[in-house]
């Protein structure tokens, strides 16, 4: 029987069974399915894929990404989406159909350096990814702090059915926007919560391959909660004296 999950490097044969090759694997000969990346191979139902542990973000249609405005022309913005391609955000997407290149000044809406939550609207081999911000929860990000993680670790940060991210959000009372490109924006009114959420995200990034990570993160968040509170009580007692 084939091993369901294991660590692989490029060239490692995962299986020669009757499976469908998916991401980061390639078919050698008729049967042999070989990994093309360093990562964890997964055989699920009748498919084989490798979850990579290294590599750049490759745009996929419908992905939510966090982009940084690099520059703009009179018709569009260019976004750095942490990939080998730049995201292309047309002005009509922001100004609407009656956009006029003469009358509307793009810099009034988005300036160089602004962070934008966007969705990949279209992407194929022939052109750079087209992104859109005309949807709910998309558009310029006004507040929060940016944390960058490896794009391959994004699924781990979200967790199975969002468990990991929910754990962090509820424990720190923050709102976290995760771009598939490895950019994460943490918004939190409480400075302590913000620091803790950032620490948790970095922890997921560095310990992505370890098992039972959600529990470990929860433990860290809870222990972290206790420590400063104790310190605060002690200080208050000191004040009384």
């Amino acid at each position: 029987m084939d091993v369901r999950r294991r660590y692989v490097i490029p060239g490692d044969t995962i299986t020669s069974g009757p499976y469908r090759p998916e991401q980061n694997v390639t078919l050698v000969g008729d049967k042999k399915i070989v990994s093309t990346a360093v990562g964890v191979s997964e055989i699920y139902d009748n498919t084989v894929k490798v979850i990579p542990l290294a590599g750049k973000y490759i745009p996929k249609i419908n992905d939510l990404v966090v982009g940084k405005v690099i520059t703009h022309t009179s018709l569009s913005w260019e976004l750095d989406i942490n990939s080998c391609y730049v995201g292309f955000l047309p002005a009509t997407d922001v100004f609407g159909r009656d956009f006029s290149a003469h009358a509307d000044e793009l810099a009034t809406k988005l300036k160089t350096g602004d962070l934008v939550a966007a969705r990949i609207a279209n992407f194929d081999r022939t052109r750079d990814p087209l992104v859109t911000i005309s949807d709910r929860d998309l558009g310029k990000i006004d507040s929060g702090e940016l944390v960058e993680i490896a794009p391959g670790r994004v699924p781990r940060l979200i967790g199975k059915r969002g468990t990991m991210i929910q754990t962090i959000e509820t424990a720190t009372d923050s709102i976290i926007t995760i771009g598939q490109n490895g950019r994460v924006v943490v918004a939190c009114d409480d400075a302590e919560g913000l620091l803790k959420a950032k620490k948790a995200i970095r922890m997921v990034n560095s310990m992505a391959h370890s098992t039972n990570l959600t529990e470990k993160v929860r433990e860290m968040l809870e222990s972290g909660n206790d420590a400063p509170r104790e310190a605060a009580t002690e200080r208050r007692e000191d004040d009384k004296e």
Binding site: I9, P10, V28, T36, A54, G55
Partner: peptide
């Protein structure tokens, strides 16, 4: 190259 996560058929 493998460390950079560039897809490779083999080492």
């Amino acid at each position: 190259l493998a460390d950079a996560g560039i897809p490779m058929r083999d080492m």
